[in-house]
Nucleic acid binder design. Structure first.
Lengths: 230, 230
DNA sequence: CTGGAGAGTGGTGTATACAACACACCGTGC
DNA sequence: GCACGGTGTGTTGTATACACCACTCTCCAG
């Protein structure tokens, strides 16, 4: 049972009014990413509605939302199923990310103000602390926060949308990183290049650093796949 | 009244079963692109349902579809409205297209088989015929068909999805071209570079040609905006 | 005349009801 | 034994019903 949020009192902008369908979507996404719903598994609206304790309407909308985010596949008259994932999909996805994100990083870095750099500095230190504590999960979340904050300064809204789209699709793989202890340390070193570029407001350097980060992440994911599937 | 399609008899793959919500979405998209629904106009589900002669359910789904395609904007609890368009949006959109489509063209060209080239040849000739007949509308549709066919051979499905997304957003501007008689002729000349690359299966050349095409299209659209708005 | 509280109205968000469809199972005929 | 048609079950697609929310307009107090 998901249940409606108690709705914290206070004025909220209508745009971020949390809808039940969005809540269900997040809930289902969590189930998929965590593996509770296996790739290829059929997602019957009725059953999900029962599980979540809501009616079919929000479940239906949630499935549409997740379809856009690439987590589920929709076939008319047949229903929804968890999107399959394989090495080919990862390669495709990262090829797209490598086209979009480095330029987005470039634009974002060039639009940064001193205060923004301070915030990013804080996140960078949080990442370092997470590595020092050997907390892969926390490193992952701080890392995501860093990139999210950086992206939010990209002045091209369309590009932001597209990058977020690829992130939603990629999120399924990120949990892998948290389970690779050796990954965080190396990632931190590589991330330093990006952060240096941020502090220097060097768009070119940021673009190159971001590209390198993606390249390495792709390699790690593919390697993990190989280990898993022989 | 839209009415259910008579459903041409014969076996159809479930994946392309035309749903009422999709029909409504196409209908509404046409209304928006043609200007029957002004930018910023509010789109009440009830009214649209009445207009289309269907219930609110498919209308609701149609609005969600068009929101993904960037034609409408959705605000929780407030409803949908036709997305605004301005020079800044065009610039943003085309910046993204210029990142995605040239690489997509490159991959597609390298994956072409002789039969595919023959088909593209036919479309190229159709474009030439349209220009000879001074039929801007037909040139536009043949041009779209050409790029659609080319894109369909891009082996990266994720990239195809993203490019189609940007196309849906860009479609609002394309009708402009049909009304610029001088455009078609120049576009045809520029398109020749791409088609030559296609026939030679030269990925690099195709990428460069596609980039140039987009660059020019952006310039034309911006110029049209300036003329329109002073 | 201005400001704010209140009901009224239209709209979305969610729940439920119904119809059409897809697939599996089973039985029959050859 | 196998192909084929009918039926049954479960699911999606669409329609309808209702509750809550956002906006507006009015009316009254100051």
């Amino acid at each position: 049972m998901i249940g409606r949020a108690p709705e914290a009192t206070g004025v909220v902008h209508p745009a971020d009014h949390k809808l039940l369908s969005r809540t269900v979507a997040d809930w289902l996404a969590e189930r998929i990413i965590s593996g509770q719903e296996a790739p290829g598994a059929r997602l019957a609206e009725t059953k999900l509605a029962e599980l979540a304790g809501v009616s079919r309407s929000p479940v239906r909308e949630a499935l549409r939302l997740l379809a856009n985010e690439g987590l589920v596949e929709l076939v008319p008259r047949l229903g929804a199923q968890v999107a399959q994932v394989g090495p080919a999909d990862v390669r495709e996805l990262y090829a797209c990310r490598m086209l979009l994100e480095p330029p987005a990083a470039r634009l974002a870095v060039r639009a940064l103000e001193p205060d923004d750099v301070t915030e990013l500095d804080a996140l960078r230190r949080a990442m370092e602390a997470a590595v020092a504590a050997d907390d892969g999960q926390r490193f992952l979340s701080e890392n995501i926060a860093y990139f999210r904050l950086l992206l939010s300064h990209c002045p091209n809204g369309t590009m932001r949308d597209l990058v977020e789209l690829t992130w939603n699709r990629a999120a399924r793989y990120w949990s892998i990183f948290a389970r690779l202890p050796r990954y965080s340390r190396g990632s931190l070193a590589q991330h330093k290049r990006l952060h240096d570029a941020v502090r220097a407001r060097d768009g070119d350097a940021a673009e190159a650093a971001d590209y390198a980060i993606l390249e390495r992440a792709l390699g790690e994911i593919l390697q993990t796949f190989e280990v898993a599937h022989g």
